[in-house]
């Protein structure tokens, strides 16, 4: 004799599976939309007109204006890394390895990852907020009705600028970090700048520098792409501006870690 409980348990099972499937479906829909956005970027990239003036302006705004923040964090990172590592290395009597250790850590991983995360926070969310505001105030529509392709002018230039400028910032940040490390080494020791940098470069191989540089190009592209995607497709209203900036930082940061993980796996095949 049917009790009616069978139907109830089926309903619970369906609703719980829907509960779990909904975010998964939303995630894949979002990834698909971002991929489409990226395809549109590559399509527009090679078609004239080329917005060189705007690209230079964006490179200045995204790169040069981010330099102080990335330089300061890089400098502090170099100092902190030495101060934290010294006791451990000292317990093995390996303090002389400090320059080598700091160089490999910074060049391979910490420099690119930390600079990229700061870039995602400052530049990625800034791009998203700016584009979302332009959408709210109908500036993007105004470009479109005056016969100008807003995707090309606004999106393509920002993604290229982010892709170019992050690697440049990482190189500068790494150099400043290493200098910070030099100062920290000298807090409890005495080493000349020449000797310090000799040890730094002796510890580095081509396989440390090249993959690290290449992955920063992808980090920059991801930050620019995600910032532009969330800004360009934001919902109307001021709430949409905040949400776009927030999503840009969250997904930009996650994409940096995912790309980093992939880069490490790919690099490990060649080392």
């Amino acid at each position: 004799m049917p009790t009616g409980l069978e139907n109830k348990s089926e309903t619970v099972a369906v609703s719980s599976s829907a509960y779990f499937l909904k975010p998964v479906k939303a995630f894949f829909e979002e990834v698909t939309a971002i991929t489409r956005f990226a395809f549109r970027f590559f399509k527009e990239l090679f078609m004239p007109r080329y917005e060189l003036k705007e690209l230079i302006r964006q490179s200045y705004l995204l790169g040069y204006k981010s330099l102080p923040l990335i330089a300061v964090t890089g400098f502090i990172m170099g100092i902190v890394l030495i101060i934290q590592s010294r006791p451990t290395l000292a317990s093995f009597g390996a303090e002389s390895w400090l320059p080598a250790m700091v160089s490999v850590s910074i060049i391979r991983e910490m420099g690119p990852a930390i600079a990229a995360l700061i870039f995602a926070g400052k530049v990625g969310s800034g791009i998203a907020a700016e584009l979302a505001s332009m959408k709210v105030t109908e500036q993007i529509d105004a470009m479109e009705v005056s016969g100008i392709n807003p995707f090309k002018y606004i999106v393509v230039t920002r993604i290229i600028a982010a892709t170019i400028m992050l690697p440049v910032l990482v190189i500068l940040s790494d150099a400043i970090s290493l200098y910070g490390g030099f100062l920290a080494v000298n807090l409890k020791g005495d080493i000349s700048l020449h000797l310090y940098f000799s040890q730094v470069f002796q510890a580095l191989a081509f396989t440390d520098i090249f993959p690290a540089f290449i992955k920063t190009i992808f980090f920059g592209f991801a930050v620019g792409l995600i910032g532009c995607y969330y800004g360009y497709n934001s919902a109307h209203g001021t709430e949409g501006v905040g949400k776009a900036a927030n999503q840009s930082f969250v997904y930009g940061s996650i994409s940096i870690f995912v790309l980093d993980m992939m880069a490490v796996q790919i690099t490990s095949f060649f080392i």
């Binding site: 505001s133 332009m134 105030t137 109908e138 500036q139 529509d141 105004a142 479109e144 009705v145 005056s146 016969g147 100008i148 392709n149």
Partner: peptide, 19 residues
């Protein structure tokens, strides 16, 4: 469409000036 749009002016409610 862009060529046709060149013949049309659009004054937006917010004026939509580029900030």
């Amino acid at each position: 469409l862009n060529l046709v749009r060149k013949k049309v002016g659009f004054l937006f409610q917010s004026a939509a000036l580029y900030d």
